[in-house]
């Protein structure tokens, strides 16, 4: 076995690749710990993980799309649509497991529409998914008349609020999603194909890779993840809210970009994305604990994204100069 495949090498590589953001993450932890004794408690750590879980579902699928050279802006609207549809289904006596499956299938269908358009035409993904974002958000308002759909079903609510031992269920889902995406990107043919079409689409075609199938997969997966986020969000809020998930697509993209993914495609790692989501989550949590006005969180989020891409820019500049 070659050295580069050993676990130690993989861990080393991980630290080397993510050194910048890891230092940032640790710095944030230290600052918050010094300012609040509540930060390093089990409750709070679980709380942070739960808060970032919905963003991580979206960011995981967004990462694959970004690597493949696309973008999906429609996921935020899909969260709201899924939430209100789920609430309505459950309120009308549809059994919870059936409702969940229908929601996930619905998400897959919306993703498939994006995927179908983007794999059969050369329309830009930004525009296509921007249109889908508006269509789905509008459909949500039309469906509910703008009202919130209340959810009382204990079984459904449990999906978003339950625990497995001490770990909240959404966090469990998050780790499952991360594992799936890690395996797909690193251990499957599909993963190599995703990196290939983002790296050079023409060369991928010349290598016999079906760009259509790969595109279809990443967008369908994105739809499913948005539906999952919609289910969890509505269950936690006891309601399907038509304004839910507003701007969620941007948080997902931010987590990917802070985690080192390239908006130009071909580059990105799930380990980095997780750190990206953690940094954004911790800043929000830390500012809360330090009793800083929540409006400031938005400014901090912006600054962090800017700093992360700025560091990345200089890293690339140095890399290109030495070559």
């Amino acid at each position: 076995m070659k050295a580069e495949n050993s676990l130690l090498e993989i861990i080393k590589e991980y630290f080397k690749r993510n050194a910048g953001i890891l230092i940032g993450l640790i710095a944030i932890c230290i600052i918050v710990t010094l300012n609040s004794d509540k930060f390093l408690t089990q409750d709070n750590i679980m709380n942070v993980l739960r808060q970032i879980s919905a963003n991580m579902y979206l960011a995981s699928s967004m990462l694959m799309i970004l690597i493949a050279g696309g973008i999906d802006l429609s996921v935020g609207s899909l969260i709201a649509l899924t939430g209100v549809v789920a609430g309505t289904l459950v309120a009308n006596g549809v059994p919870v497991p059936v409702a969940l499956i229908l929601c996930l299938l619905g998400g897959a269908l919306c993703g498939a529409v994006n995927g179908a358009i983007l794999s059969t035409t050369t329309l830009p993904p930004f525009i296509v998914t921007l249109s889908m974002m508006n269509i789905l958000r509008g459909a949500t308002y039309v469906f509910t008349g703008g009202a919130t759909v209340r959810i009382d079903d204990r079984n459904f609510i449990n999906v978003g609020t339950g625990y497995f031992t001490i770990i909240p269920l959404p966090v469990i889902y998050m780790f499952i999603v991360i594992l799936i995406v890690f395996l797909v990107l690193n251990k499957t043919k599909l993963g190599r194909h995703i990196y290939a079409i983002g790296g050079n689409q023409k060369a991928a075609q010349f290598s016999g890779i079906s760009v259509r199938k790969v595109r279809m997969f990443v967008y369908v997966f994105s739809g499913i993840m948005a539906a999952l986020a919609g289910i969890v969000t509505s269950a936690r809020n006891y309601s399907g809210n038509p304004v839910a998930g507003n701007g969620a697509e941007m948080d997902a993209i931010a987590a990917c970009v802070v985690g080192g993914a390239s908006m130009a495609g071909g580059y990105g790692y799930i380990g980095g994305t997780l750190i990206g989501a953690l940094i954004i989550g911790l800043v929000n949590n830390g500012l809360n604990l330090m009793r800083i006005d929540s409006y400031w969180q938005i400014i901090f989020k912006g600054v962090i994204i800017l700093v992360a891409v700025y560091i990345d820019y200089f890293k690339n500049l140095k890399k290109n100069k030495t070559n």
Partner: peptide, 15 residues
């Protein structure tokens, strides 16, 4: 088939 335009059709430059 080894394509004509190496940079455009042949390689994945950053990989």
């Amino acid at each position: 088939l080894v394509p004509e335009d190496r940079r455009d059709e042949g390689i994945f430059p950053d990989m």
